[in-house]
Computed example of a mutant assay.
Amino acid sequence: METVAAVVVTFNRLNDLKICIDTLRAQTRKLDVIYVINNGSTDGTDEWLATQPDLTVTTQANLGGAGGFATGIQTAYNGGSTWLWCMDDDCVAAPDALQKLLESPNLGPCIKNSMSVSAKDHSELAFYVDRPNRTYRTVSDMTQFDLIYGVASFFNGTLIHSEVVKTVGTPDVKLFIWGDEVEYMTRTIKNGFPVVTVPASIFYHPPSFDRNGIPWPGAWKQYYAVRNQRRVFQNVHGDAYGMAVFAKWALGQTMEQARTKRTNRLYNFLIFGEAAIDSLINNFRKRPDNILTLRLYKYMHK
């Protein structure tokens, strides 16, 4: 009999976590186990989790989304679950979200993703998807299909078969955040497993935003989005050509920051450049406190 484990990664969003867990408990297809990976939260999450006997909890240092899902996926895989249903703590699952995923067409070992709908506007997707031949921005763009191949919003209702984990492994801890989920998706596709969105299965999530427009000092996250993109290009194009594609892309993106008249344009330019250089020299060790542009910004804004 197939078993399903939920994997929830959380960091300092206790109120969101409580809502997320409530929606998992209310699923029409009951979960066999709920794993919660607490990435070193300091907002009372530890204390609340200790009072929830139906949750299996792992507490670790903050290793970012990549480290959280790496731990959670490995833990659920080691536990013998057939399917691993992965999500951030700010996800809200429709009551039949899991049931709809499991009832969708059988593709064998694969990854099936719920449709991520904006929590603020239920007619829009939480994450816009632009493909060469089609753009998905509204719910109606997706609901006309039973399955949408090659499109998925990791890790927001992402159902992973254990055979995928056996072959592909877990997210790369070194990527930390922003881009680790795309790298895992492209690595899965590279290994020949189908990746699809199932529009009948609905997850609600806060809508995405223009990452380039994040106010400083929060824009340090863009460092990881740029740095980690190299791995995505290499999964898609191969190591050598992927590196060349990344170098061209990173140069264009960095120069765009210099040309675009935004507040803190200098810092945007510097952090894009720092991320590109670190990626090209294979420096994936930096955590936020080690990002030179962020340190410069904090020094200049004491």
Rank of each mutant, 00 (worst) to 15 (best):
Q60E: 12
F176P: 02
K298S: 09
I214K: 13
T59R: 06
I19E: 10
K18A: 04
Y299I: 10
V245A: 06
G68D: 03
V245Y: 00
P194A: 09
N156M: 11
L101S: 05
N268R: 15
N38Q: 08
L296N: 11
I111Q: 07
T158W: 02
L251P: 02
F284V: 01
P132Q: 03
K112P: 01
F155L: 01
C91P: 01
F203N: 15
N39V: 02
A93F: 10
H122I: 11
G213P: 09
A97E: 08
G192Y: 13
T263N: 15
R134C: 14
N264G: 04
T59C: 05
I34H: 07
A258Y: 09
Y128G: 15
D88A: 07
L251V: 09
G64T: 08
A66M: 12
V173L: 12
T254V: 05
R137F: 13
R25G: 11
F233I: 00
E181D: 15
A258Q: 10
R211K: 14
I148G: 04
E103Y: 09
G40I: 04
R231S: 12
Q27Y: 03
E103R: 10
E2N: 14
G252R: 06
E183A: 15
V151W: 00
F154D: 00
K18W: 01
M87E: 04
P194E: 08
S81N: 15
N78S: 12
G108E: 07
Y35W: 05
K261L: 12
I277Q: 07
F193I: 01
D172F: 04
A94E: 11
W249D: 00
K298Y: 04
R285Y: 10
A276E: 00
F176K: 02
R262S: 12
L147N: 02
A66Q: 12
V8N: 05
A275V: 01
K248T: 10
V151A: 03
C91V: 09
L266I: 15
P206I: 06
L17H: 00
N156R: 11
Y128E: 14
D146M: 01
T135V: 13
V164D: 01
V198A: 11
P215G: 02
T260S: 10
P217Y: 02
M300H: 13
A76G: 11
Y136V: 06
D121L: 01
P288K: 00
R285A: 13
H237M: 11
A97G: 08
W85H: 08
A152H: 00
D289E: 14
K286R: 07
D46S: 13
D46P: 06
I19R: 09
S41H: 10
M87Y: 04
D146S: 06
L107V: 10
S162W: 05
F193W: 05
I277F: 08
G238A: 06
E256D: 15
T143K: 03
V182D: 15
T45S: 10
G64Y: 03
E103G: 04
K302C: 12
L17G: 01
K166G: 03
Q74P: 03
T197P: 09
N133D: 15
G179E: 05
E47G: 04
G108F: 11
L280P: 00
W249A: 02
E256S: 15
T23P: 01
L175P: 00
T143E: 10
V7C: 08
M1N: 12
E256G: 13
A276Y: 00
F69N: 09
L17F: 03
Q52R: 14
L251H: 12
R29M: 14
T293V: 06
R131A: 05
L159I: 01
D43A: 07
D22C: 02
T188E: 08
P109D: 11
